[in-house]
Nucleic acid binder design. Structure first.
Lengths: 130, 130
DNA sequence: ATGCGTGCAAACGATTTGCAGCCGG
DNA sequence: CCGGCTGCAAATCGTTTGCACGCAT
């Protein structure tokens, strides 16, 4: 059902190589630099497809921009993302999971879900910034 | 410093009366219905001002739209929102704050910020659902 | 009187979509 | 060969901004 085109392959490969959160626009630029340019619209469409297929993690930045990255694990987890370069660390926090569950329960809420993402500046980017 | 205009008053009053999360556009429509119409740009600007002044809580939906609601407390906190009726409880969690800071730091990240929202079904809605 | 606040429309940035031609299966 | 995929440009959508005028202080 999913046709394998050169642009889809290029995008998947690019994400595979970094494993960091990147925006559609960044990926578009990176592809162009690599000489494997693809239309911006195609990048967007491909990212959506892959995300729907569960092959990519997606999240929205504070500024409202969507970021995608190659999944490393399917289980529930959160992310610590560098707001400058997109470098990502997957973290699981039994502590917060419990906290969320406990707090929700204490207010009589059930079927509790949570959205938790951490943003920061990684050591490398902090150093470069001067 | 903040000048009190009729549109600012109308917006504040509207938010005060619902205490629910609303988008700028929703507020704009509600104001028009009330016959207290204000320019859409003004609504946006006012919401930003109020949010910066710490008088409004702001969050971004999954779809990327900003929502605002009247604060009940000024300090940093998170929300527990009933996904059925929208009822919101403000929660603070020194535990998670620390956790976020600690986890971020342990990976060498600095200037750590976090996005944490809890969604659940409140006791009342859970009871009604049967 | 001053100059912030407002309204309107144009500008914006991210994302989507219409459509004709391309190409993978 | 056929229909999904692509590229491009135009279209959306939410939000922001430039500018001239109005009104709160």
């Amino acid at each position: 059902m999913q046709r394998m085109t050169k642009q889809r392959a290029a995008i998947a490969e690019l994400l595979e190589s970094t494993h960091d959160f990147k925006s559609a626009q960044q990926l578009h630029d990176l592809l162009r630099e690599r000489g494997e340019a693809a239309g911006l619209a195609t990048v967007y469409r491909t990212l959506q497809n892959l995300a729907e297929a569960g092959e990519l993690d997606a999240l929205r930045t504070e500024e409202g921009e969507m970021l995608y990255r190659m999944c490393e694990r399917a289980e529930h987890h959160h992310h610590l993302v560098c707001r400058s370069c997109g470098k990502t660390v997957e973290i699981d926090g039994p502590t917060v999971e419990d906290w969320a569950q406990r707090v929700g329960g204490s207010f009589g809420f059930s079927e509790i879900e949570h959205t938790i993402e951490l943003f920061g500046t990684c050591a490398q980017c902090a150093g470069m910034r001067v």
